[in-house]
Design a protein around this nucleic acid. Structure first.
Lengths: 155, 155
DNA sequence: TCAAGATTTGTACTTATTCCATTTCTCTGG
DNA sequence: CCAGAGAAATGGAATAAGTACAAATCTTGA
């Protein structure tokens, strides 16, 4: 039995609003969406939402753990509905495309640091950097490595 | 026999300038420095440098592999002279403080992704998230979790 | 239904970083 | 050692991502 998004919000003690539901839905439909992607996705869904609300909502939901925020170097923050699993990401150096990678190690934190400097560690975030098939192809055929593959789109 | 910084730059085919040497030196002396830290560090050293030059230099040196750029979520980019080793980082969730952690696995990429989506992976970046001793103390004594521990300073 | 207060909105503002045109400097060759 | 070509540095403007704040609007519990 699937939990209703509205119920999910109530269970976390926050008001149920059209904006929040739409943000949740949009991120679910488009994993690794940026705030801007969400803005457009939500507008398609419920007609209008302010940019500020998108940020507010994204922050609120991330803080509650309903969304997970990832922020690869050189890209705006991206969001995903997290299944609670502890997966990681592959990021393309050229186009910024992000993909999911299951964690082979299991539960979080899935790695244990050797010397923790006295830190109390609760999460190990892994990002695999490389080149996606599309960009690799481009690099092979084109001599100029200027890839214009949109960083935002999912395949 | 230690390699002269100037020679290092020449070997990489770029001009030797006072700015570049000072940036290299500053980052070496203050690991995990932000662009702003570097700006001030260099000004102390050679009197003056434009903010733009700091960014240019940081980018150039990073591209050449003489510096390593790390960019934890919610913080400006930080730089370190990399010894070529493949170490990782611990980041404090409260104050943003960054520490080094040796990689137990060895050479890079130190981890192998299960399903790579056809990506050609060349690096596995690991960030351990947690709370540093100082912030943990603050949280314990103060009820309001407003930590003012400077995010920039190294201990 | 109503009031309290949570949320949304619009606007202004900050921070980190890049773009561009111009000036200045470094290196190579004479 | 000096000059010229091209590389870097500078200053100023511009952009992108995100935050601050006060006013308007909507949710929820009584």
């Amino acid at each position: 039995m699937i939990i209703e998004p509205a119920q999910l919000l109530r269970e976390h003690g926050i008001y149920v609003t059209a904006q929040r539901l739409a943000v949740l839905d949009t991120v679910g439909a488009q994993p690794h969406a940026t705030a801007d992607d969400v803005l457009h996705g939500v507008r398609e869904q419920i007609g209008t939402i302010s940019r500020q609300s998108v940020y507010d909502t994204l922050n609120t939901l991330s803080d509650l753990g309903l969304l997970r925020r990832i922020q690869p170097s050189g890209s705006a923050a991206r969001y995903e509905t997290r299944a609670g699993d502890n997966h990681h990401h592959v990021v393309c150096r050229d186009c910024g495309h992000v993909g999911d990678v299951d964690c082979a190690l299991g539960a979080r934190p899935c790695l244990t640091a050797s010397d923790t400097h006295g830190f109390d560690i609760d999460e190990a975030e892994v990002v695999y950097w490389g080149r996606c098939p599309t960009c690799r192809e481009h690099a092979a055929t084109t001599s100029s490595a200027t890839t214009t593959h949109t960083p935002t789109g999912e395949p």
